[in-house]
C-alpha cells in the first residue's frame, strides 16, 4: 500500500514537473515574504521589546491573551467587530452584484459607460479624505445631508457623535467607496454568460426579471461564492484607519473594534505583545468564519474555494 502510494506520488511528480517550475517563483515569494515574517507572530507570547528583539524579550506564555480577554474591552471589541462584519456582509457584499446587474441590464450605452466609470472613481480617494468629507457632509449646521433633511422637514442630527449612527455611517461610506470597484469582477463575469441562454429564454417568453433570476444569477453563482469566501475574512479585519478617523469617545460603544484596540495598544502604547495577541484573535475569528463559509458552500452549491 505504502509502496504504491509513493510510486503514484513519484508518477504524479514526474507528470507535473513543468507545472512545478511554473509554480516555483510564486511559491518562493510566498515563503520569503509571507511565511518567513509570520514567525514574528510569536510576539503574542512575549513581552516584546522592539529594540531587543526576541532574544532580549521575556517569554510570557499566554499572558498577553489573558490581558486582552480578561480586560474590560474584550466583549465589546468582539461584538463590534462581528456587527460591523455583519453589516458589511448584508450591505456592502451584495451591492456590487446588484450594481453589476444594473449596469449590464442598462440599455443606453452612454449612460452605461458613465455609470461604470463614475462608480469606480471613489475607490481612488484616500480614506483620510473620504472620512473628512463624511464629517463635512454630516455636519449638523453646514452639512449637505442635514440641509436635505431640514428641507424635507426633518431635524438636523449630529450623526458623528451618537453611537446608533456609527455603523450605518461607516457601512454607507465603505459601500460608496468600494461598490463600483468590486462590481468589476461581477461585470466581467456577467459578460461571460453564454448569450444563447438568454435567447432561448426569450423564445420561451421569459421576462427581464425571470431572465435575471434564472440565467444571470445562476451564471455568476460560482463567482459570488468565491468572492464571499474570500471577502468574509476581510470584513472581519475591519481597517482601523477609517474607524480612527470617524469615531469619537461617545461612539466607542459601537465603533471600537479589535483592530482599533490593537492599534491603541501597539502603536500608541508600544505594547506589541497585546496588540499581536488581539490581532491573532481577529485572524482566528476570520479563519473560523472562512472555513465555515467554505463548508456551507460546499454543501449547498457543491463549490468551494479549496
Amino acid at each position: 500500500m505504502g509502496l504504491s502510494r509513493s510510486r503514484s506520488l513519484k508518477k504524479r511528480f514526474i507528470g507535473s514537473w513543468q507545472l512545478l517550475i511554473l509554480l516555483l517563483p510564486g511559491l518562493i515569494w510566498y515563503i520569503l515574504f509571507c511565511y518567513r515574517p509570520m514567525i514574528g507572530l510569536r510576539m503574542a507570547f512575549y513581552d516584546y521589546n522592539v529594540f531587543r528583539g526576541f532574544e532580549g524579550s521575556t517569554f510570557v506564555g499566554l499572558d498577553n491573551f489573558k490581558t486582552y480577554v480578561m480586560g474590560p474591552d474584550f466583549f465589546r471589541t468582539i461584538k463590534n467587530t462581528l456587527f460591523i462584519a455583519l453589516w458589511q456582509m448584508l450591505i456592502c457584499f451584495p451591492a456590487p452584484i446588484l450594481l453589476a446587474i444594473i449596469i449590464t441590464e442598462m440599455r443606453f450605452n452612454v449612460l452605461k459607460k458613465i455609470v461604470q466609470t463614475v462608480t469606480f472613481i471613489p475607490y481612488f480617494i484616500s480614506a483620510v479624505v473620504v472620512c473628512g468629507m463624511v464629517v463635512n457632509f454630516l455636519s449638523p449646521s453646514t452639512g449637505i445631508i442635514n440641509k436635505f433633511i431640514e428641507l424635507f422637514g426633518g431635524e438636523a442630527t449630529y450623526f458623528m457623535v451618537y453611537p446608533q449612527y456609527f455603523r450605518p455611517v461607516y457601512t454607507l461610506m465603505t459601500l460608496w467607496q468600494t461598490a463600483g470597484f468590486n462590481a468589476i469582477v461581477y461585470i466581467a463575469a456577467l459578460m461571460g454568460i453564454d448569450p444563447q441562454l438568454y435567447e432561448a429564454a426569450l423564445v420561451d417568453g421569459a421576462g427581464r426579471f425571470q431572465r435575471i433570476w434564472h440565467i444571470t444569477l445562476p451564471g455568476i453563482i460560482p463567482t459570488i461564492v468565491t468572492m464571499f469566501i474570500m471577502n468574509i475574512g476581510k470584513m472581519v479585519k475591519v481597517g482601523y484607519e477609517s474607524i480612527l478617523l470617524l469615531y469619537q469617545p461617545s461612539t466607542y460603544s459601537t465603533a471600537d473594534v479589535i483592530s482599533t484596540y490593537s492599534f491603541r495598544m501597539g502603536i500608541q502604547n508600544g505594547d506589541y505583545g497585546i496588540a499581536t495577541a488581539a490581532g491573532l484573535f481577529e485572524a482566528i475569528i476570520a479563519l473560523i468564519l472562512v472555513v465555515a463559509a467554505n463548508k456551507v458552500s460546499k454543501r449547498l452549491t457543491e463549490s468551494a474555494l479549496w
Partner: peptide
C-alpha cells in the same frame, strides 16, 4: 511605567467616552 500604561489604556478611553456621553445627553 508598563503597568501604568496598561491601566490608563483602559481608563482614559472609558472616561472620555462617559464624559462625552453625558455632555451630549446620551
Amino acid at each position: 511605567e508598563i503597568r501604568y500604561e496598561r491601566i490608563m489604556g483602559q481608563i482614559q478611553p472609558y472616561v472620555e467616552e462617559k464624559l462625552q456621553g453625558w455632555i451630549l445627553g446620551t
